[in-house]
Design a protein around this nucleic acid. Structure first.
Lengths: 332, 332
DNA sequence: TTGAAAGCGCTAACAG
DNA sequence: CTGTTAGCGCTTTCAA
């Protein structure tokens, strides 16, 4: 019970017309007699004919109606929502999403990008884990549009969609300062990531502005998984001169910190970057934003480039806003 | 600054060798003189040559090194983890994931499946929102292997990977009964989904076995988003003869229920299907399982089929286990 | 309204 | 070790 998938030629032979005629019918072109069209369609349905997109796109000599999305991990809710936003924006124009995770590894990302380009994706959306973007710059030059998401490229003039990292962290720190906190800690992601650096820099700026020069004592970086984040949180709180408040720089780290304090009656105030599903239930103050928008804005930008727009690179900065909940409500 | 992407022919001309030789070099075949290979590679690198996978796959006459994944919503953590599991399993064999969301809409799913088949994916992993699987059955017959995830097909003999839905719900209900609960409610997803029906059936069976014949009074179905789930939860608790415990049948519904009770001091005991990131922090008892495994087991099954295995359909049932936390610890 | 021929980029098969 | 030929499934171009 395993027949072969019929080709357009097979349909043509079975209907006694030329391949071109079948092609016309299948593509809904005009100038086909109604009865011819009907016959062809019935044969096509009977045989289970499916036009071969591979052949079509190949013949067109160009790219495939596909966009590559490279993120750190599809299962991270932040990236998953970017994927959803992108998918929705690409739906109408008829493009599909080829998604791949780089596991925050630069070498793997290069392999993925090469694969995707060889597959002739129409464009690339990438949350890059690499700080050398010469490969991506090259591909861009050779005709594959690239839009950088979340992390702007340091060395390439290309489109980007990022968050207002500095603004978010500044507001968070000011909020905590207003509540009387002075010893404020920060738990951050891999220090090689530009977003991390921006967030830490903004943190330092806000702390210095508040007259707290030794802010670096309470900074813990490179917490990329939940356990590391928990450890960093405990480390901060158990250390001498422990902070009374902590800023976590992404949803994973926030989760890790929450776990660290689950069995402790005394908890520092907490503000986390990224909103998350149960933040309201848990009463966690967050720097909220819309990851779907990052995906959809990036996808629309890419669509413009695919359509031939070769204007100068555009940089989108998505807004963030502080959502105050119980975790930062107690004053010092 | 927008050159053209060179073809293998261009590389051949620039290096003064035949296309076949370039092909050999690019594919790492033997029987190429070292210096020839070196020259070709340097020209290829200089020109930014990328073998055209579209052409290669097309030429091979077959399918693309791609697997289609159809779920309800890439951003739902359950589906996102399935995607991750699948992606990891497909990584080594060199297949990419083309993922698409059906928004739990049958018509949309059919469009997606058609698109993916036309793109000649090597196989399909689908969490189907459709209860008529004749289309998928047809494609399977025509040579595109299909593995059903989470929801087994009613009408097609095909591979599937599902959870032990009945076992999970039974254990949850028994756990609540042991704690003395008798009026136990259930909040469920769309009633047309087979998983929902299995879970409700198992619920009814366990309740009847406990001598509670009027269990249906506390069943609320068709809560597909967070707000509906919250509403159902409040409805149950505010109703006459309110249940003292509630079973929620998936992670979204659990979240909705938690939101419904966030500002209420009196909360029913709760057991949720699907574990989730902050369940430990929130102390929510859950029926846990491993969604990544669903993706990877499904992908491996698909790989076997792609490799030509045409044995009888295999049905994998993944285990679930009750993780008891505070939300069900109070006895009645 | 329909058809014939050519070719997209690449590689298998078969020489040399 | 290297080259030539042919063709994958489809659509564009040009004729009929």
């Amino acid at each position: 019970m395993h027949s072969e998938r019929p080709t357009l030629r097979a349909v043509a032979e079975r209907s006694g017309v030329s391949m071109k005629t079948v092609s016309r019918v299948v593509n809904g072109e005009r100038y086909v007699a109604a009865d011819t069209a009907a016959r062809v369609l019935s044969v096509a349905a009977e045989l289970g004919f499916r036009p071969n997109t591979l052949a079509r796109e190949f013949r067109a000599g160009g790219s495939s109606a596909t966009v590559g999305l490279v993120t750190g991990d599809v299962a991270n809710p932040f990236y998953a929502r970017i994927a959803r936003g992108a998918e929705h924006a690409l739906r109408d124009p008829g493009l599909s999403l080829l998604s791949a995770s780089n596991d925050e590894d630069a070498a793997r990302e290069r392999t993925l990008v090469a694969h995707l380009v060889e597959r002739r994706v129409s464009g690339l959306l990438v949350v890059s884990a690499d700080d050398d973007h010469t490969l991506l710059a090259r591909e861009r030059t050779l005709g594959t549009p690239v839009v950088f998401l979340d992390r702007a490229p340091a060395d390439v003039a290309a489109d980007s969609v990022v968050l207002d990292n500095a603004g978010g962290v500044r507001v968070a720190v000011e909020h905590l300062l207003e509540r009387g906190h002075r010893r404020i800690g920060l738990i951050g992601d891999l220090s090689r990531l530009s977003t991390h650096r921006e967030r830490v820099d903004a943190f330092g700026t806000a702390m210095r502005a508040a007259g707290i020069p030794d802010w670096e004592r309470w900074v813990r970086s490179d917490s990329h998984d939940l356990d590391e984040a928990s450890r960093a949180a405990r480390d901060l709180v158990d250390g001498p001169d422990a902070p009374t408040a902590i800023v976590t720089t992404n949803n994973r780290i926030t989760t890790g910190a929450l776990r660290a304090f689950v069995d402790r009656p005394e908890r520092p105030a907490l503000v986390g970057f990224d909103d998350f599903d149960l933040a309201d239930v848990l009463g966690v103050t967050v720097i909220a934003h819309d990851p779907d928008a990052m995906g959809s804005v990036g996808a629309r930008e890419l669509l413009a480039r695919i359509a031939g727009d070769d204007g100068p690179p555009r940089h989108h900065v998505l807004p963030v806003r502080l959502v105050v909940r119980a975790s930062s409500s107690t004053s010092r």
